[in-house]
Measured scan of single mutants.
Amino acid sequence: KELVLVLYDYQEKSPREVTVKKGDILTLLNSTNKDWWKVEVDDRQGFIPAAYLKKL
């Protein structure tokens, strides 16, 4: 499984997104879309802008 580091706080703006904090380490589920990556946060799955994440 691939992990990503959150570079900036992000507040979800729709039900398909998730809220994260800078410094969080998340499981990356899908990065095929270059703009929005799907991650897992506390048993929730959702999207975050790829620019907010860095692969570890």
Rank of each mutant, 00 (worst) to 15 (best):
2 E>A: 13
3 L>H: 10
3 L>D: 04
3 L>C: 10
4 V>C: 11
4 V>K: 00
4 V>L: 04
4 V>F: 04
5 L>N: 02
5 L>R: 07
6 V>W: 01
7 L>M: 08
7 L>N: 02
8 Y>W: 13
9 D>V: 02
10 Y>T: 01
11 Q>E: 14
11 Q>I: 14
11 Q>K: 15
12 E>D: 05
12 E>G: 14
12 E>P: 10
14 S>N: 12
14 S>D: 14
16 R>V: 10
17 E>Y: 05
18 V>E: 02
18 V>W: 07
19 T>G: 05
20 V>Q: 01
20 V>M: 02
20 V>R: 01
22 K>C: 08
22 K>D: 02
22 K>F: 05
22 K>N: 05
23 G>L: 02
23 G>T: 01
23 G>N: 07
24 D>H: 08
25 I>R: 05
26 L>A: 09
26 L>V: 13
27 T>N: 09
27 T>W: 15
28 L>M: 03
29 L>M: 07
30 N>I: 07
30 N>T: 08
30 N>L: 10
30 N>G: 07
30 N>E: 15
30 N>A: 10
31 S>C: 11
31 S>T: 09
32 T>E: 15
32 T>F: 10
32 T>L: 10
32 T>W: 09
32 T>G: 10
33 N>I: 06
33 N>W: 09
34 K>I: 10
34 K>D: 10
35 D>H: 15
35 D>Q: 15
35 D>W: 15
36 W>H: 04
36 W>P: 00
38 K>E: 15
38 K>Q: 14
39 V>E: 00
39 V>Y: 01
40 E>N: 06
40 E>L: 11
41 V>S: 11
41 V>F: 10
41 V>Q: 09
42 D>E: 11
43 D>I: 09
43 D>N: 14
43 D>M: 10
44 R>H: 08
44 R>W: 10
45 Q>S: 14
46 G>I: 11
46 G>A: 09
46 G>T: 07
47 F>E: 04
47 F>R: 03
48 I>Q: 00
48 I>P: 00
48 I>W: 01
50 A>P: 07
50 A>E: 03
51 A>K: 14
51 A>M: 15
51 A>R: 15
52 Y>L: 09
53 L>Y: 01
53 L>Q: 01
54 K>S: 10
55 K>P: 08
56 L>T: 06
56 L>V: 11
56 L>Y: 09
